[in-house]
Amino acid sequence: MKAAAFPLIALLGLSAGCGKPKGQAERPQAVINFHQLFSENCAACHGTSGKTGAGPKLNDPLYLALASREDMRNVIENGRPGTPMPAFGFARGGTLTEKQIGAIVDGMEKEWAKPVNLQGATLPVYGIAKAPPGNARRGQAQYMRNCMMCHGFGSFKGIAGPITDPNYLALVSNQYLRTTAIVGRIDWGMPDWRHRIPGHVMNDQDISDVVAWLASQRPKGYMMAENQSTDNSFANQSSPDSEREPKR
């Protein structure tokens, strides 16, 4: 009876066909499965399922409501020069085709986007180019009011650690500062723009002002590309640099 067990196992295996090859090896450019693409290209910085990563949280209905598909396509394709976000587009030396980038954007929208209840507040503008120009001096006051409790000022470090550290500011774009100022980092405990101070909602102008002040704290020579292309509005009106210069 024992000897009969082996052919039985073989027969079982055969009928189940568990050894049958599942699918053929795909060329990397042929992969359009969102989960595979995300885990191979994005998860390392943005977290396993788009959250609790070192980089911006993407699995966030608020963020997905704020940034348009075109914005996200653009960032994936071209990266953010000067920041750790590389360009993934084929034309920019990356590994992803347009179709694959489309699949990632579609996947994020499909899996993670949800209707957001704004609780009466209006969603600020996403792009710094379209945002109202900021005023650094007003921005400092806004920082003291909205950010200082956690991020500290001067010798007070705050529980979340300083964001006025020049090394930090040299590695983040104004767009990143603006986006984070709006959506926060819920996964790491940073509230969004509506919930910093009870009863107070930052408006579009407040956010632009804070970003302008933080940008004015950045050491010279960093994030030049972004400043040139989109931050000219600052220079024309109330340039944070021109305001800071006399102080030094």
């Binding site: 290209n41 390392a44 910085c45 070192a54 750790p84 300083p162 930090y168």
Partner: peptide, 27 residues
């Protein structure tokens, strides 16, 4: 670099600068 996330426990209670450092490590 693009597929292995920084373990979550190594990112907890980090300053913004340290978190950026984790991104530089990946990038």
């Amino acid at each position: 670099w693009s597929s292995q996330p920084v373990p979550v426990d190594l990112l907890q209670h980090r300053t913004p600068l340290e978190t950026r450092g984790a991104l530089v490590l990946q990038n």
